[in-house]
Structure formats: structure tokens, C-alpha cells
Design a protein around this nucleic acid. Structure first.
Length: 547
RNA sequence: GCGCCGGUAGCUCAGUAGGAUAGAGCAUCAGCCUUCUAAGCUGAGGGUCACAGGUUCGAAUCCUGUCCGGCGUGCCA
């Protein structure tokens, strides 16, 4: 689209000027049906009211004023009720291929975000358990978004926010303690009702015993504190290990606790009080969100004196603002949706520009096998962890599957399909295209040619041109994926590239006696390879040279 | 009750800021390997876009209402 538009826009504007039209936006789109041209515009429809004429007549007068190079544009036709369809010529595509080739390894990179800083917060799981599929989706979306911004030239902070104080971590300590006693001392020791029922608690209890023996048997604050620390460390170690398997490395781990120790929680409380936005009722401190346009007020400090999660969330986001980011992105699961308006509204009342915050909410993941849903209940503890899944289907498949759907729809993870080590698995389709190209280059080594120069004008078959058409969309795909924050857009694009390449490969032989043609086709394959490599890098999937 | 997300082929999902004959993968059926990797290519069947109204040259897409599913709606995070 970028290349099409760059070429077409001036031509159309010139034509419209002749008709004394200047205040209309020239919009182009790629028709879903290639029979309607490479690019199409509905501009004639948009002008019907202003010109009081039929779309067809308007289209005709626009066309008759167009001046263009016949080698670049083959044909401009009026079709349908008044669409102007543009058919590009071979030379246009050869020209684009040259431009793509010149970008070499940097193909698809931008400088849009140069000098700008973005913070992407993802995963952010408290160290009270293992990662499961939902966390995995969050992690893979977040990492892909972070990669995209890096590709656009931004300076990216990959952040993980966690809380190792408060209620949840106490529940963890109590759960571990109960299992510890149950295994080694009293088989029928009661397990807390609100405890974590997962099997991993047994594992922690066993590791705890091998470190401390029976020294923690007595239930007192000191021992529980030791257990708490042990459990937290244990969980974090596991979480980081799992993330590492997914090639996810974050560079800031923000501990909620730090907000208290440096007084940032108190600071926020003071500001709210000063601005008259908070008040006391029933021994608790409330935030007057109803004065700010929301439905109801919320407690920010419980009557026990502990803050609710909302208060540190607000303080944390204030901290991010104060660190001077141009863009703040939060990746949340749909279960966190309730807090978003509260936090944003509060920040606005503090004078921050909340349009800089982009909250991405993804829906849940379900796991299915043989058409049956596998229940992932926390209650029974028989949950399927992200590690289990990685063991079973591998890193590439997990990363790919967890982002291949729009983030706003539920994602069904089909274990059978994921396990499939064959053409049925969509991951391999992409990787295979890359491996094929690598293998061609390997084979081409045996033919003694000078690869530096190639006459791209020798290209021109239907399949070659179609491949170039697919390749020239890479930048658009990256932009669109980032703009919409929908990683699956990039995946869909890469699938098209792979498909178009496979068809080209099937129909046009690359390695042949005709060395000049071969060189040109190798250039085409080279650009394809780089786009697949870069695309796969962004989504965190490997690009194997052999399969 | 209220808020957010979803309802499109047998299944899982796309549908590009309202466009032309609604698409893909899987599944089903039928073809293509003595030539660069068949993890590939080619073809066929398969649809009341949940339902009902509305907006306009034009609606799967926007608006209203209804039905169904998920997630929220805590002095849990």
C-alpha cells in the first residue's frame, strides 16, 4: 500500500486539481478480489454529493485527467458502480523490488519512533504460582508488541510488575506450611479453604524440607516469613525459567513494595486528600470516583489500614508517567478489566495525559483435545501449566498459537493440531518456506556465479509478480499490526508471503541453466527470506534453515 | 441489573476505519513427486454472517432492541 500510495497520490491530486477539487482525501484500498485491480479507489462515490453527479461520470472525468507512465501503470478502469481500479505494470513492481533489496537486513524497520520511549508491561504475575496458558498468552502478546515498537525505532522498556507483600503471598505461605506439615508430620493436617490447591505446593514443601528439615514445624511469624520468602523465590525462579524458554526477557522488574518504601503511596494519598478526591467512611478511605464521572466510589485503603490493589496501581502508573515515557502500554487479561477505568480516571484527575496509556485486554485461553475442553481449575490443582505445554509441543508452536488469534476473542488452543508435526500445523508452513529458501541458496553455491548484480527486469511471470506484490506489503503489515495492537495481523501476512512463495517455487524453477534469470530469482528469494526472518523474529518464532 | 468481549462453512478463526461474487486453515472428496525439501502445489463440495428493525448509492462491518456464551461488577489482585 505504501508503495502504491506514494506513486498514486500525486497523480490523483493533480487530476483532482484540474477539476477544481482540493478538499477531498484520496483513499486507496486493495480490493479483496485481485480481478478488480492492484489498487482501487472509491473517490468517485465520495464526490457524488459535492458534484451532484453520478459516481461513474465523476470517475470518468477523474480518469481522463490522469497523467501517468504507461510502463508503471498498465491500465486504469472504471468498474462496478464507479470504482476506479488501477492495474500496475511490471516495471512498477521491479522498481519496488529494487527498493526492498536496498534495505537488506533492515527490511521492515522504521525510524518513526526515533527518540521516543515506550514502556510495555506484561506478564506481571505475582510469585504465588506457576505460569499457565492465560499468562502465556499475555506474555507472548506483550513480547510481540514490545518487539514491534523496537522495530519501529522506539526505545522499549519491557517491564514486569509484581507484588510480594499482602494477602496473596500470605495465602501462599499458609498453603506451603500446610503441605509441609501434611507430608512430614501430620497426614491429616487441615488445608486452608482459601489456599492454593495446585500440586506445585507439594513440590515447594518438599524443597522446603530438604533445605530446612523440621526446623519450620512450629507455626510462628518468623517461620511463616521464612516460608514466604522461600515460596516467593521458588515461584519466581520457575516463572523466569519458563519465560526464558519462550525467549522472553524483561529488563525492569518493578516491585510494588518499593512504592511504599519510598513514600509514593503516601504521596498519592496526600494529593487525593488535598484535592478533595478522597474521604473517610466506615474506617476506610474512599476515592470519590463518582465525582469524576464513574459509577461508584471505591475503597483505596481498607479499614485495616492496608491499601486495596487500586491505590498501588495508581501510584505505579504515576511512577511510569514520571519516568517520562511517550507511550505506556499495559497488557491485561480480561479479568483485570474492572480496574482500568478507575486507574485511568484517577490519573487524569492528577493531571496526567491518559491518552498516552494504551491498555490491551486479551480474552481467555481454553485448551482442547479431541474436541473436548480440558479444564484448568485452580481449585482441583490439576491445572495444565505453560511448562507442560512447552514440553509437549515446543516453544515455536506455543508462541505462534498464543498470538495467532485476535486478542479480543477467546483463544482455543487445539492440542491435537499443536502436536501435529506435519503440514497441518500452521507454524511449519511459515518455517518451511524459510527452510526451502535456505536450501535453495545452499544448492546455488555449487553453481559458480557472481551474485552481486542481477538484472531484475528478467522477472515477470505471474508468480514472480505476485510474490513481489506480497513482499511490498511488509511495512504496511508491521504498521497495521502495531497500530491495532493485533499480532495476528502480522501472522496472517507472513502466511500470505509463505504461500505466495510456495506457489512461485512450484511453478518457476530458481536454479537453472539460465544463470541470468537464476540470479534475478535468487534476489527475489533473498528478499522473501529476509522478510520471513524478520517477521518470525518479531513474533518470537525461530527461522530454521533446515527442516 | 450494569460494564467489557464474542456469536461468520462440520470445527477453529480472518474479514484491512461501510464497498464489488463473504475468505483461510483443519476436516471431507479428487488430482500432482526419475528436475531446487510433497512440512509443498492444484481442484471440488460446504454459508439465512445469532435474530429483528434502522441509517444510505451500498451493511458481516455503523445505530437500536432481543437471544446465547465468556469475563468482570470486593474493604481479593
Amino acid at each position: 500500500m505504501k508503495y502504491y500510495r506514494e506513486y498514486l497520490e500525486p497523480i490523483f491530486i493533480k487530476s483532482l486539481k484540474k477539476l477544481d477539487i482540493s478538499d477531498v482525501e484520496t483513499q486507496f484500498e486493495q480490493p479483496s478480489n485481485p480481478a478488480f485491480g492492484d489498487i482501487s479507489t472509491n473517490i468517485a462515490f465520495k464526490l457524488t454529493k459535492a458534484l451532484k453527479s453520478s459516481p461513474k461520470q465523476i470517475a470518468e472525468s477523474i480518469i481522463s485527467n490522469l497523467e501517468y507512465d504507461k510502463d508503471y501503470i498498465k491500465e486504469v478502469k472504471i468498474e462496478g458502480a464507479g470504482f476506479i481500479n488501477i492495474y500496475f505494470g511490471k516495471l512498477f513492481f521491479i522498481n519496488v523490488l529494487e527498493k526492498l533489496l536496498a534495505k537488506a537486513e533492515d527490511i521492515g524497520k522504521f525510524e518513526l519512533g526515533k527518540g521516543k520511549r515506550v514502556n510495555v508491561e506484561y506478564v506481571s504475575v505475582n510469585p504465588t504460582g506457576l505460569l499457565h496458558l492465560g499468562h502465556g498468552r499475555n506474555a507472548c502478546i506483550g513480547d510481540t508488541i514490545a518487539n514491534l515498537y523496537e522495530w519501529l525505532g522506539y526505545e522499549v522498556t519491557r517491564e514486569y510488575y509484581f507484588n510480594n507483600a499482602g494477602n496473596q503471598i500470605n495465602v501462599l505461605a499458609n498453603s506451603i506450611y500446610a503441605r509441609y506439615i501434611e507430608i512430614y508430620f501430620e497426614p491429616h493436617y487441615p488445608f486452608p479453604n482459601d489456599g492454593y490447591f495446585g500440586d506445585y505446593i507439594y513440590d515447594i514443601a518438599e524443597d522446603l524440607y530438604s533445605n530446612y528439615g523440621d526446623r519450620l514445624r512450629e507455626r510462628n511469624d518468623e517461620n511463616l516469613n521464612t516460608i514466604k520468602k522461600f515460596g516467593e523465590k521458588w515461584c519466581f525462579y520457575k516463572i523466569e525459567k519458563t519465560l526464558k524458554r519462550l525467549k522472553i526477557q524483561q529488563n525492569v522488574f518493578f516491585n510494588e513494595d518499593s512504592l511504599y518504601t519510598v513514600g509514593k503511596i503516601q504521596e498519592i494519598l496526600d494529593i487525593f486528600k488535598e484535592k478533595g478526591l478522597s474521604y473517610e467512611k466506615d474506617g476506610a478511605i474512599w476515592l470519590a470516583l463518582s465525582n469524576l464521572g464513574l459509577d461508584s466510589d471505591r475503597v483505596i485503603v481498607k479499614s485495616t489500614g492496608e491499601p486495596t490493589y487500586r491505590l498501588p496501581d495508581i501510584a505505579y502508573h504515576k511512577d511510569k508517567f514520571d519516568r517520562g515515557y511517550d507511550l505506556i502500554i499495559d497488557i491485561f487479561g480480561s479479568d483485570h478489566i474492572a480496574t482500568v477505568p478507575d486507574v485511568l480516571t484517577a490519573l487524569k484527575s492528577l493531571g496526567y495525559d491518559t491518552s498516552k496509556v494504551k491498555v490491551l485486554i486479551h480474552q481467555f485461553v481454553t485448551l482442547s483435545e479431541n474436541g473436548q475442553q480440558i479444564k484448568m481449575s485452580k481449585r482441583t490443582g490439576k491445572s495444565y501449566t505453560l511448562d507442560d505445554l512447552l514440553d509437549e509441543v515446543g516453544e515455536d508452536v506455543v508462541r505462534f498459537f498464543l498470538i495467532m488469534r485476535s486478542i479480543s476473542t477467546h483463544l482455543e488452543f487445539d492440542l491435537n493440531l499443536a502436536r501435529e508435526q506435519s503440514e497441518k500445523n500452521p507454524v511449519y508452513y511459515l518455517q518451511y518456506a524459510h527452510a526451502r529458501i535456505c536450501s535453495i541458496f545452499e544448492n546455488a553455491k555449487s553453481v559458480d556465479i557472481d551474485n552481486s548484480q542481477a538484472n531484475l527486469n528478467l522477472l515477470g511471470t505471474e508468480f514472480e509478480i505476485n510474490l513481489i506484490k506480497a513482499l511490498l506489503g511488509f511495512q504496511d503489515a508491521i504498521l497495521m499490526t502495531t497500530e491495532k495492537s493485533e499480532p495476528h495481523i502480522l501472522i496472517d501476512y507472513l502466511k500470505t508471503v509463505a504461500q505466495t512463495f510456495h506457489i512461485f517455487y512450484h511453478n518457476d524453477r530458481i536454479i537453472s541453466q539460465d544463470t541470468e534469470l537464476m540470479k534475478a530469482r535468487l534476489k527475489l528469494a533473498d528478499v522473501t527470506k529476509k522478510i520471513l526472518q524478520n517477521g518470525l523474529k518479531i513474533i518470537g518464532v525461530s527461522a530454521p534453515e533446515k527442516m
